[in-house]
Design a binder for these strands. Structure first.
Length: 510
RNA sequence: GGUCGGGUGGCCGAGUGGCUAGGCAGAGCUCUGCAAAAGCUCCUACAGCGGUUCGAAUCCGCUCUCGACCUCCA
């Protein structure tokens, strides 16, 4: 498998450092607000990567943090903690807020079809580890205390290690900061150099979230949690570090500096970054008034949306683009994709439900021109070929859109089977079904089981629907169209669609 | 201003030197009491201008243009 490594800016063959184990760390959400569209893309992406690595036989430890402390807000807030700020506004305990949004996040992730990570460490639960790491950095001369805060000494670091390799940043230019006005950061006067970043922040008296430390009461800086927790659970260097492209600088650059300075080795081997989502071509941002929460997306309660979107159709939409391209969300793009998704899933369900007729010996092959060609199906219906192509797609930097397109093509070829033009043997068909299920459900994470999960309810519904449709059929047989249309319309209003075809009537929910 | 990444058919979105991805929309057709669904067929594009090459969406140069980041962010 090849993965694009931001560090080298090329696709590199993936080689695990300690096979069969793979350590993957992905920057998790800051739980100070409702989960939004920006959360959907990275976590769907890395969920598929996690699933695929497992499929390839790796034992993956997937660590994704919950940030519930310490992110500084901008100068207007004088270094006040984001979570503390929201807590005051909503008059809740900070941890109450954290709990609320953590649960909302988990629920959204579940709806999107994401498997939970192996470990989901909280920053607030790892204060001692962070303090320990900061102490180590001070001991080694890469950090200094100032006025109850601790800052990373970038100058000292740069004397020994290169800085800015990941993001392509040059420190002197950062400081010069040509062009736009630079934001005045809190505590700038305490720093030796403006480019130094906070490892620990002294808490003002009104700051709610605070912990004891060797430097007085305070809270950890933004970047240190990922370094401390990543090393704790995965050991540096681990295999993969993922996150959104927006985290490249300064967050990941700082992580590299911290871990390298502390442990004298890079945090990880591969840096994998997903690109951003845009809304109607524009960056999504709270200030731009185009922020879409996942709840609103799933319920259709957002002014920019014309309808509710099935969470898995959002997953489909996300996976229809390669993770390194920007992905533009618009109502029209979503509804186009949702339609395609519906057909895709329906076709797959039919494929999985299809049972080839057991027939004579020659059923396996069809129209092989030459004698001696190996038996088997042509095209994607041949499970070996399907798998080879599917794997090629994913091996190429997780090219999920190509895999999805491949399945569409397979469904197209399935038509020739349905129509009887090609006869398949039950054994071949079982092979194909197994492979398709692996790629579509195990790896891509879609659900091809039937919607109604409650079995007693399901069978009751099944039976009553059969009765109703039988009655309607009787009406149809006696050409009582008024009666049959009445039944269909009434069912339609109840949310049940009825479709007639040659074999009779079919129905589906929604 | 700096760094990085893009511009592909009506829309979304793959594709890194030759072999028309795929989806949605649109058109025609099949099926059909009507409808819906499904299926079949059609729609052959790569920002512009140069260059390299037998051959360029793909490589090189320039121009135009969009976006991300530059200490809140997924």
């Amino acid at each position: 498998m090849h993965l694009y490594n931001t560090l080298s800016r090329t696709k590199e063959p993936f080689v695990a450092l300690r096979p069969p184990h793979v350590g993957m760390y992905v920057c998790g959400p800051t739980v100070y607000g409702a989960p939004h569209l920006g959360h959907a893309r990275p976590y769907v992406t890395f969920d598929v990567l996690n699933r695929y690595l497992r499929y390839l036989g790796y034992k993956v430890r997937y660590v994704r943090n919950i940030t519930d402390v310490g992110h500084l807000v901008d100068d207007a807030d004088e270094g006040e903690d984001k979570i503390a700020r929201r807590a005051r506004l909503e008059k809740k305990e900070p941890m109450e807020l954290v709990q609320l949004y953590t649960l909302a996040f988990h629920k959204a992730m579940d709806l999107l079809g994401n498997q939970p990570p192996s470990i989901e460490p909280r920053a607030s639960g790892h204060i001692p580890e962070q303090i320990e790491m900061i102490e180590g950095l001070i001991r080694k001369g890469f950090a200094y205390e100032s006025n109850g805060s601790v800052y990373f000494d970038l100058e000292a670091y740069r004397l020994k290690y290169p800085y800015g390799v990941l993001s392509g940043r040059v420190v002197d230019e950062l400081v010069a900061g040509a062009g736009n006005e630079r934001r005045a950061l809190a505590g700038q006067s305490e720093k030796r150099k403006p480019e130094d970043f906070a490892l620990w922040k002294n808490a003002e008296p009104e700051h709610i979230m605070r912990w004891n430390s060797p430097w007085g009461q305070g809270f950890p800086g933004w970047h240190i949690e990922c370094s401390a927790m990543g090393v704790k659970y995965l050991d540096a260097p681990f295999d993969i570090h993922g996150g959104g492209m927006d985290l490249l600088f300064p967050h990941h650059e700082s992580e590299i500096a911290q871990t390298t300075a502390c442990h004298n080795c890079a945090p990880c081997r591969y840096w994998v970054h997903n690109n951003m989502v845009t809304i109607n071509g524009q960056k999504m941002g709270k200030s731009l008034d185009n922020f879409i929460n996942l709840d609103d997306l799933f319920a259709g309660t957002h002014p920019l949306l014309s309808q509710a979107y099935d969470p898995l159709s959002i997953r489909f939409f996300i996976l229809q683009a390669q993770y390194r391209s920007t992905l533009d969300f618009s109502d029209s793009a979503l509804s186009a994709s949702a339609k395609g998704y519906k057909r895709w899933v329906q076709g797959l369900k039919e494929l999985l439900a299809y049972n080839p007729v057991k027939s004579e010996a020659h059923s396996v092959t069809h129209s092989h021109k030459r004698q001696g060609t190996r038996p088997g199906l042509e095209g994607l219906l041949n499970s070996t070929l399907f798998e080879a192509k599917a794997q090629t797609a994913l091996n190429d930097d997780l090219n999920t859109p190509v895999l999805i397109a491949l399945v569409y093509e397979l469904l197209n070829e399935f038509q020739t089977v349905k129509s009887g033009k090609i006869v398949v043997s039950p054994a071949d068909w079982d092979d194909l079904k197994t492979k398709v299920k692996v790629y579509v459900t195990d790896i891509l994470g879609f659900d091809l089981s039937d919607e109604v999960s409650d079995t007693s309810l399901s069978s009751a519904l099944e039976a009553s629907m059969k009765l109703i449709l039988d009655l309607r059929q009787q009406a149809k047989d006696s050409k009582n169209w008024a009666q049959s249309d009445l039944i269909r319309d009434a069912l339609n209003e109840a949310g049940i669609k009825v479709m007639d075809d040659k074999e009779g009537s079919r129905w589906s929910l929604g």
